[in-house]
Design a protein around this nucleic acid. Structure first.
Lengths: 194, 194, 194, 194
DNA sequence: CATGAATGAGAGTTCATTCAT
DNA sequence: GATGAATGAACTCTCATTCAT
């Protein structure tokens, strides 16, 4: 039983996730989720009791799954510059697939639900990414690939630009060239020209 | 009569603006606005017939008022570097006053209302700002204040960072130091050190 | 002043009449009439205070105008059979112009407003028409044109058929042939064949 | 479950029917029906979503039930004249029970809802009844009970008179004598006097 | 556990009616 | 007289939430 209901729980979260991707957070109703899951109205309440709760669980799943964005896709002999390029390529894919991510739902959710500033989920995600990029740049500098006087500053700059592109993509749509242009601008600021 | 009702119209828009600032776009109901304005249910419909309509009007007012952000506040003998610094200071003020702007409402609004990509309101605003900053940087270069090989790229980078900071501010809150840090990073990339 | 307002009164009634023709009685609102008349909301209330009142006045006008259906259009030497034929032709015209009469509005009105049975407006109209047709038939019998043992019964039968055709026309629409067929059937029952 | 809700459905339709009989079609609101049924506001929407829909379903029930007006109530050895008399008696009962039928609601409904003329519900009902009466008259003629040169015409005449009486009954009310008089007139025109 | 019927609160919208100008 | 802004009642419809089965 516990096994079965655990699976149903996952099923609901995965289905709800699609709904949040499509409609953001605020406009999603319990009814929307019930209908998408094709379960009974009362049934949903056995597992969750509000869209907030469901969304937080969806987010939890999301985080667990995506933790290893970097670690997974890197070949043995990749240079820091390769890795950064790969990361940016990954980001680009997400940016352009406007309809396939939770971005806007997440923003909406954290706009309504004023969480404690310290240890904020979004903050932690952001800081973690910054840290990784920073290390990457430092490694690049050491390897003689990059020139950068302020790796932390550069890392932050990159992340804010990505966040700016993200919201732009969600609210006005952006063309591939636009992303390429920004990625190029970033890389040019780092890579040592010969 | 027309005079009075024009004033009431403005009054409604200003009051509604506050509601949008507080609650974003999606969760605002006609009832919210009616109550904020302290007018009758039917009364509001005399002027507007949906939150969409009201929001677009609020936006129109907003745009008209803020058109001259630059022109208004610049002294005669300001150098490009001064003007840019002033602009960034202005942006900082907006970023930190999380509660006093429509940012999130605008994002929500344009997330639901899929407008034509060409001539998109947000795109136009963005492009316009980019253009101004570009000119500014070019002027700075000519004046020997700035060093920049790609003024357009730099301008875009600045705007995306600002947009990233904006959404960060709305969804997790940001400290003053964070903004300062980014502004500094931007300026350091431009200004010629002696 | 009184002159002017009398004219406005007439104007309102005539305009309202068109509205009743189009929408029946029940679904007509004060707003509908105000808009059709292009006068102010409050203005209408200076003259009338409900759709009931307006409708009754419209009906009064109607009756005054149409009293002389018979008297007006009859030539000197018309035989009873001619007159009856003319009357039926007139009725046919009205029946087919489904959109141009108050029939349905009248029915709706008298369905809601339960008037005293005696001296009922519709009853009086009906009885009056019956009487005229009866006289006509009697005259036709005397003139050797018609054969009829029960002129009153025949007159009533004619009127009920006409009423049946009227409601049929309003609710399902009827073709010209249908009316012709019924008129023919009636005339054949009366006229002496040679 | 389905059993229970099917019963509730019927219950709603029967209750709504009474409301339509009382108020016609146009003035009936969902609220009226909710209150008559003593169910919750939202409850009704589980079954039907507009008065139109409810009315059409009521009409459907009505038709199914009344299909066998003739077949049911006829004894083995009834003559055509008996059957016609029975039919007219039945109609008389309906005509006089002004409060107990949907007549006016049906007229209102089909006045607002302009249906395709071909295959119109009211037309079909009318034509069907005409056909039956025609057959009856033909049978009567063959049996030597009736004299009639145009059975179809006579049948139509009867039906239009009945329709005229119906609307008269709904809008001004008619006395029993009036109906009797018309029935008598009709029968006298058919039956062969000895 | 699961279902889905049922409830009632609440948002949207329209109009009759009033009233200050 | 005439206007039209303003009000509030009434209706439509949707959903979160509960509960008997």
């Amino acid at each position: 039983m516990s096994e079965k209901s655990a699976q149903k729980r996952i099923y609901i979260l995965e289905t709800a996730r699609k709904v949040f991707i499509k409609k953001g957070f605020k406009s999603v109703t319990m009814k929307d989720i019930v209908e998408a899951c094709e379960i009974s109205r009362g049934g949903l309440y056995l597992y969750f009791s509000s869209t907030e709760e469901i969304f937080m669980e969806v987010l939890k799943m999301e985080t667990e799954e995506t933790d290893d964005v970097f670690s997974g896709s890197i070949g043995k002999n990749a240079t820091p510059s390769d890795i950064l390029a790969l990361f940016l390529k990954e980001q680009k894919k997400e940016l352009l697939g406007r309809k396939d991510n939770l971005t806007m739902a997440v923003y909406e959710f954290f706009f309504v639900n004023k969480f404690p500033k310290k240890n904020h989920f979004l903050k932690q995600q952001f800081e973690a990414a910054v840290k990784i990029i920073e290390k990457l740049i430092e490694a690049g500098v050491e390897a003689g690939e990059f020139y950068c006087e302020d790796p932390l500053g550069a890392a932050r700059n990159i992340m804010y630009v990505l966040e700016g592109l993200k919201i732009a993509s969600q609210t006005r749509g952006i063309a591939e060239e636009v992303v390429d242009r920004e990625v190029l601008y970033i890389m040019r600021g780092l890579v040592i020209e010969e």
